[in-house]
């Protein structure tokens, strides 16, 4: 999961301080693994260097974390590209996908498109595996079936998420 893209996505909703960013991240995606502040700082430095964010201002009397960041046009394009790019179907994908869906909802992008894109990608892989299974021996079949069942589980999750997008959007935007 890309923390850089996630923070960029959070910034797209509006300029924030570094500390705000960490808090927002923890609240929405951190769950049981809060982000270390150092990680936020280093990530923001990299983004700043790549021209994806800029410093809007520094608050008076503040410490090192008093910088207020905003996203650049290049940053927006980067988020866009990231969101529309389907993830390579692999295990434990849901956290990335979840992040993407939430960010899409936060930034007013079409989350259902995102899910459909991912779905098509999953199914493409499933077709390939099904093909391989048909032509292969029993070992191939068993290996392919294992992958297929996992992909099927992901797809079910995608379907379920798609069906609950409205509910999630209300939750996220609150």
């Amino acid at each position: 999961m890309s923390i850089g893209h996630t923070l960029l996505g959070l910034l797209e909703a509006g300029p924030r301080h570094g500390y705000d960013l960490k808090r927002a991240f923890d609240e929405k995606f951190g769950h049981d693994r809060p982000l270390a502040y150092g990680q936020v700082y280093s990530t923001m430095s990299r983004l700043l260097k790549n021209g994806l964010v800029e410093v809007e201002g520094i608050e008076a009397g503040g410490g090192p974390d008093r910088k207020r960041y905003s996203i650049t046009d290049a940053g927006i394009t980067d988020v866009e590209a990231w969101l529309s790019q389907p993830e390579k179907p692999e295990p434990y994908l849901h956290s990335t996908l979840y992040t993407k869906v939430v960010l899409a909802l936060l930034t007013g992008r079409r989350a259902d498109e995102l899910l459909d894109t991912q779905r098509a990608e999953h199914l493409r892989l499933m077709r390939i595996l099904t093909q391989r299974k048909r032509k292969g021996d029993i070992a191939d079949q068993l290996i392919c079936d294992h992958a297929l069942f996992h992909l099927e589980a992901d797809l079910r999750w995608l379907e379920l998420t798609a069906a609950r997008l409205d509910q999630l959007a209300r939750e996220v935007r609150r």
Binding site: D116, R119, A120, H122, M126, T130, E152
Partner: peptide
Amino acid sequence: ETRVAAYSDREIVVRDGKSR
């Protein structure tokens, strides 16, 4: 069933009477 659908060449999704 997606595993059944994986036998296809192409997929069309129908939602609320609209196809995709």
